[in-house]
Nucleic acid binder design. Structure first.
Lengths: 326, 326
DNA sequence: CTGAAAGCGCTAACAT
DNA sequence: ATGTTAGCGCTTTCAG
C-alpha cells in the first residue's frame, strides 16, 4: 500500500509538502500541489489514519456504546447522534454492550485504546466505570441513564414524571387497579418509572413486577400479575419490547386491551398503531436525546473546560385506544 | 496519560520488557513481570492501540457496515456477527450507511484508514466499491446483497425461491390476483423477490410496485395498488418495515388482512404475532447470516489465500392467519 | 514556500 | 531473559 513517502518520491517533493497539500493546512505552490495530487491519485494513496492519529493524538471518530441494538429506542438515539456527528465531520461507531457490563467494559477499553475523540454511552447500570475515560481526558456523555458518579454531561428523559402522568391517565379513565411492569432493579430508568407509578397510585396500592427489558420478561410478569388474587385492570409497561410479551400474555388469556385491561407502554414503536386497539404510549424523544448528546459531546471536545450539564427532555403521552374502555 | 516509557521507568526495566510482560509473548522473569504489572496498575496504564496497530499493521476490530440500523433484519445480523467476533477476541464496530452510497463510502474510508482487520458489509447496491479494501488486502464479506463484481465471500439468502414459494402459498390459498410490493430498483434483494414472485404468477399476471424499504413506501404502494381498476386480493411485501405501511393502508380502507386481502411479508419482526390476524411471514435466518459472515471473515483474516465462497441460506415461510380466508 | 528532521507510543529484530 | 534500537506513516516545528 502506498505511503506518503511513495507519493513524495513520485511527485519529487518532500513528505512535508505532500502532507501540507493533502491537508490544505498551509499554502503550497499550485504547481507542486498539482504534482502531488496527480501522484496521490495515480498511486491510489490513502493516508494511514493510524499514523495520523498517533501523531495528532486525536481521532475524528465518536464511539456510541448502547445497551441494546435491537431496541428501537436505542437505534433512534443512534440516528440522532449520527446525524449531528456527520455534519461535523465525525464518524460514529456503534458498540452493542448488550446490557452486559463485561461487554461494556470491553468497549470502553476499545474506545480508550483507539483513542476516539469522545463517547456517548447508555450505562448498563450499577458498575459502569467511566473513570478511565475521564482520567484520560476523553469526553463522555451519558444518555438515558445517569452515571452513578455524576460527573460529565448527561441527557435524560423525565421518565418519572411521564410514568406518573401515564398512570394518572389510566386512573382517570376509570381503571381501578393499575399495576406496573418495570425493568430490572439497579437500572435507573426502571426505578424511575416505578417511582412515577407509585407517585400516582400511592405506596399502599402499588402492585409491581420487575423483569428484564425483553418480551419474555414482560410476558412472565403479566402472567404472574393476572394470577394475583386481585388482578389488575390496567398495566403500565416499562418499554415496547416488554409490551410485546405483555400483549401476548393478554391474548393467551383471552383478555382484550382497553376493554378488559387498560394498557400504556413506554416507547412509541412503529407497530403500536397496527394492533387492535392501537397502543397508548409514552413517546420518548429518542432521536433528540441522540442529537443533544452529540452536540454536547462535540462542544466538550472543542472546549474541555465547559462545565457539565444535565439536560432533561420531556416524554409525551400519546393516547390511543388501549387505555380506554369501549 | 501514562506511556510504556513511564511504566518501564517506574518498574526499572526496559520498554521491551514491559511490552513482553503485557502481551505475554515471550517469557519474562516473574519478579520483573510482577514489578511491571504493579507499575502499570499504579499508573493506570492503558496501551495506546493506535501506536500498537501502527507498529503491528493490524487491528483486532471488525467493521460492520449495514444499510439500516433501524431495520430488525440488519440488527439481527449485527448480533450474529458480534457473537462470533467476541469469542474470537475481536470487537466489532457498527456503521450505519443508511442506504446511502455517500455514507457507505465514508465508512469504507474510515475502515480503511483505521486499518480494521476486516469488514462485513451489506452493500447499498449499484455503486458499492470495495476495491480499495481488497487492493489493500482487507478481507471483506458481503451479506444480504451480493457485490456487483463478484469477488470475495458472500452470504446471502435465497430470497427468490422464498418469494416464489410465498406467492404460491397465496395462490394455493385461493387468492386470485396476487401483487407484489418490493424495494427500489437496483437493490438486489428487491429484484430477487420480484423475480421469485414473477416466477410464481407468470410474467403476464405480474402486478408490482417498487418503493423505498420504509413504512411510507409500503403505504403509498399499497394505496396505489388498491386503486387499480382490478385491485389485488393478496400482497407479497418486501420487508417488515414496508409491511407496517401496507397494513396501515389496508386499515385506512377498512380492509381486513386474510379475509379481504391475503398478506405475506418478508422478515419475522417481533410484532407480527401481535396483530390480528397474525402475519404470515418469510423468516430470514438473519442471525445465522451474521454468524456465518463473521466466521468467513475470521477464516480469511487467518488465511488470505482461501478462495472466495458464496453461502446461500434458506428462508422459511411461517404461515399464520393473514394468508388465509376466514 | 519548501525541506529536513524529530518524534507520537509501541513492538520486534538483534544483541547481549 | 533482558536491553538496545530501528522503525510503522504521518504531522509539525524549525531552518532555509
Amino acid at each position: 500500500m502506498a505511503t506518503i513517502n511513495d507519493v513524495a518520491a513520485k511527485a519529487g517533493v518532500s513528505t512535508a509538502t505532500v502532507s501540507r497539500t493533502l491537508n490544505g493546512k498551509s499554502t503550497v505552490d499550485p504547481v507542486l500541489a498539482a504534482r502531488v495530487q496527480a501522484a496521490a491519485a495515480e498511486l491510489g494513496y490513502h493516508p494511514n489514519g493510524l499514523a495520523r492519529n498517533l501523531r495528532r493524538q486525536e481521532t475524528a471518530v465518536l464511539a456510541l456504546i448502547i445497551s441494546d441494538v435491537e431496541n428501537p429506542f436505542f437505534t433512534a438515539i443512534a440516528r440522532g447522534v449520527e446525524d449531528i456527528a456527520q455534519t461535523a465531520g465525525y464518524s460514529v461507531v456503534l458498540c452493542n454492550a448488550d446490557d452486559n457490563e463485561e461487554k461494556e467494559r470491553r468497549y470502553i477499553d476499545v474506545a480508550l485504546q483507539e483513542r476516539v475523540a469522545g463517547v456517548v454511552l447508555s450505562p448498563t447500570g450499577r458498575a459502569t466505570n467511566v473513570d478511565r475515560l475521564t482520567e484520560r481526558g476523553t469526553p463522555v456523555v451519558a444518555v438515558d441513564r445517569p452515571l452513578l458518579k455524576n460527573t460529565g454531561d448527561q441527557v435524560l428523559v423525565d421518565t418519572r414524571l411521564a410514568a406518573r402522568d401515564a398512570t394518572r391517565h389510566l386512573l382517570d379513565g376509570g381503571y381501578r387497579r393499575v399495576a406496573c411492569v418495570s425493568g430490572p432493579p439497579g437500572v435507573r430508568t426502571a426505578e424511575d418509572r416505578l417511582a412515577g407509578y407509585t407517585d400516582a397510585v400511592g405506596e399502599a396500592n402499588a402492585l409491581t413486577r420487575r423483569a428484564e427489558f425483553r418480551a419474555e420478561g414482560g410476558r412472565l410478569a403479566a402472567l404472574s400479575l393476572l394470577d394475583e388474587p386481585e388482578p389488575p385492570d390496567a398495566l403500565l409497561i416499562g418499554n415496547s419490547t416488554m409490551a410485546i410479551g405483555v400483549l401476548e400474555a393478554l391474548a393467551s388469556r383471552g383478555l382484550r386491551s382497553g376493554q378488559d385491561v387498560g394498557i400504556v407502554s413506554f416507547d412509541d414503536a412503529p407497530w403500536t398503531t397496527l394492533i387492535d386497539p392501537p397502543l397508548t404510549v409514552v413517546a420518548q424523544p429518542a432521536n433528540e436525546v441522540g442529537r443533544v448528546a452529540a452536540e454536547l459531546l462535540l462542544a466538550r471536545i472543542g472546549d474541555g473546560t465547559r462545565k457539565a450539564t444535565t439536560t432533561t427532555l420531556q416524554a409525551k403521552l400519546i393516547v390511543r385506544r388501549s387505555s380506554r374502555r369501549g
